[in-house]
Structures are given as C-alpha cells and as structure tokens.
C-alpha cells in the first residue's frame, strides 16, 4: 500500500486516522444534509405548526424570520448544521421541549435493551456458530442454520406480540409492557436517583434489589427476542469465519502436534476469528438500535424508537428528524468504533 521508505509506524497510523476522521465528518455532514432536505420538502408548514392557525400575518412573518426560513436554502442549511453542532436539534412541536433533551432521556432505555440483547446474541451465537463449523453437514449444523434463517425471517414486531401472548398472557413468567410494574413506576421516579438512565444500573446502585428484579422481568423478553435476531446473524458469521480458519495450515500443525481439540478451536482459531467477528458484533449492535424501533412500540418501552414513532403519528417532524439524526450518528460512531477495534486487534491493519 505505502511504497514510501521506512517511516515511523506512527506516521502511517496517523494518516489512517486522519482519513477515517475526514470520512466520518463527510458522512455526518451528508447525514445532516439528507435530514435537512427531508425536513424541507415536508408538506407541513413549520411556521403554522408553531404559531397555530389563528395567528396574524405579523406573527407568522416574525416566526418565519426567527426560524431563519426567509433566508436562502443554503444559508438555512448552514444554520441547521451550526445548530446541530451546538446540540440544538430543534424543538418538538408536540411537547415544546428541545428534541435533544427528550432524546437523551429516551436513549438510555434503548441502549440498555440493545446492550443486553447483544450480550445474549453473542453468548448464544458464538458457541452455536463454532459448533456448526466444527461439524459441517451434521444435524447440529443444519439446526443452527435453520434456527438462524428463522431469525432472519421473523418479523420482530410479530415475534414480540407472540412472546407477550405466550410468556406474559398465558404463562405469566415475565412482566408485561413497560420498564417496571405500575406499582414500582412511581417509586422509581421518587426514590431512585437517575445516574445512568439505565434502570438495571440505577436500581443496583440504589440498592433497590426488589426493583432490580422487577426490571429484569420486564427487560428479559424484549431483550431475549432482539437477542435471538442478533444471534441469528452472529452464529452465521461465526460459522463461516471459523470454517475458513479451520482450513488453514496452522490448524493442521497444531493438531499434528497433538494439541487438544478445544485448544485448537477456542485459542488458536478463535484468535483469528475474533478479528472479523468484532466488526460483525458492532454491526449487529447498530442494527439493534434500529430494530428496537418496532420492538419498543410493542413493549411500550420508552426509548428512542418509541419517541420517533410517537412523533411520527402526530406529524412532529422536528422530533422525527432529530431522532433520526441521533440514531444515524450512533450508527456511524459504532461503525467507526468497530473499525478502530479492528485495527487494534489485527496487527496487519496497523
């Protein structure tokens, strides 16, 4: 790649970082641009939505100026970007609350759900993928493949409904919709100091284990369902990466030396599987942030997805677009993170 004479390894790394940062900035700018365009072609007049229909001409004109809507489009875009960089994503029409404030309140709930789901997905998906890869063509391989394909094919909102019906309605094993039982909801509000916004962490910090257990009973079903979807993806990728590694010569060498098979697989091969697998896990994490949109609607989970869909229903465009920008940024940052981790783990990429 670099034909230049031996320079310090740091120079190459810095160049790589510079390129990554530039592409990050360009992508984020593009993200804002697309959102801006979407927001500008809306058939709803943002001025009327704010001042109401009985406003006078003068009020309308004043608001229009205040919003910067009398400026040319490119200047409006600059204002939009400037505001976004300062953390101003607009004001929700429905609640009159700054979008960023509402979004940052909703984000921890989504993050908690997606994190737990990813943990479940990794814990189930990696061993399943390894099992399938070590016995290709066996019954176990076919089952892992079929279970994975089913996860790909399942409408997640429908799976959520069926899960609720079965585990909450019929069996009564888990808590229903929401993050806590109604009885705990008020108590949580008054007795637990929100440190992280994630209910499991906050109740544990406050030493309220009764609430903690209740929160788990509400979290386990949506997290389990999303975890299944992410397991489908992770097990499939693990299988194909592992198959690829097991065909390499260093594996044969290790086996010929008489190394126990578990060590060959979990230590020698796994080290190399881990490199691409990190990207896969980061990607699936990013998709869970998105996949939670429908799941949150089903489980009345007060996260980002619920915020966006609720805003959609009442045509609250600033809230929808602000939420979209936040999810987009999280998506881009996760991709960047996986890229950086990749460089860290794989010496060749340095």
């Amino acid at each position: 790649m670099t034909a230049s004479l031996p320079s310090s390894p740091w120079a190459g790394r810095l160049r790589g970082l510079g390129a990554a940062l530039f592409s990050l900035a360009a992508t984020l700018l593009g993200l804002l641009f697309v959102t801006f365009i979407i927001g500008r072609v809306v058939p709803i007049d943002p001025v009327l939505a704010i001042v109401g229909e009985r406003a006078t001409e003068a009020q309308i004109a004043a608001t229009r100026t205040a919003l910067g809507l009398d400026q040319p489009l490119w200047q409006q875009f600059l204002i939009f970007v400037g505001n976004a960089l300062q953390g101003d994503l607009g004001t929700s029409i429905r609640t009159g609350e700054p979008v960023l404030q509402a979004v940052s309140r909703a984000f921890p709930a989504t993050l908690e759900l997606a994190t737990l789901a990813t943990i479940i997905g990794v814990l189930a998906g990696v061993p399943a993928g390894v099992l399938a890869a070590t016995r290709p063509g066996s019954l176990a391989d076919h089952i892992v493949r079929l279970v994975g394909l089913m996860g790909y094919s399942m409408p997640v909102f429908w799976l959520g409904l069926i899960g609720l019906l079965l585990f909450y309605g019929v069996l009564g094993w888990v808590g229903g919709p929401g993050r806590l039982d109604a009885a705990f909801d008020m108590m949580y509000e008054f007795e637990v100091t929100p440190v992280s916004g994630m209910i499991l962490i906050d109740t544990a910090l406050a030493g309220r284990w009764d609430m903690f257990v209740n929160a788990i009973s509400h979290l386990i079903l949506p997290a389990g369902l999303l975890g299944y979807v992410s397991m489908a993806y992770i097990s499939r990728m693990t299988r194909s990466f592992m198959m690829n590694e097991l065909g390499q010569e260093y594996i044969t060498t290790a086996r010929v030396k008489g190394m126990p098979e578990w060590r060959v697989i979990w230590v020698h091969a796994m080290r190399n599987v881990l490199v691409p697998l990190i990207t896969v896990i980061a990607l699936s994490y990013a998709y869970l942030l998105e996949g939670s949109v429908l799941t949150e609607t089903i489980f009345a989970w007060p996260g980002l997805g619920s915020y966006i869909t609720d805003a959609l229903m009442v045509n609250d465009m600033p809230a929808v677009l602000g939420g979209t920008v936040v999810v987009g940024v999280a998506f881009v940052l996760l991709n960047l993170l996986s890229d950086l981790l990749y460089r860290l783990v794989d010496p060749r990429a340095r």
Binding site: T27, G30, L31, F33, V34, I38, V42, I308, V327
Partner: peptide
C-alpha cells in the same frame, strides 16, 4: 460513492420511516 456511504450510514427502517412521514 460518498453519497452511497451516507445512505448506507442511515439505518434503513428509520430512513424509510422519515421518508414515509414526509411523503405521507
């Protein structure tokens, strides 16, 4: 390709949601 990357950076369902919200 930069435009392609930007569209890839958007979560698909959310972008589709925002578009439908605009288009009706």
């Amino acid at each position: 390709m930069r435009i392609t990357d930007i569209f890839l950076a958007f979560p698909r369902l959310i972008l589709a949601l925002a578009l439908v919200a605009v288009l009706g």
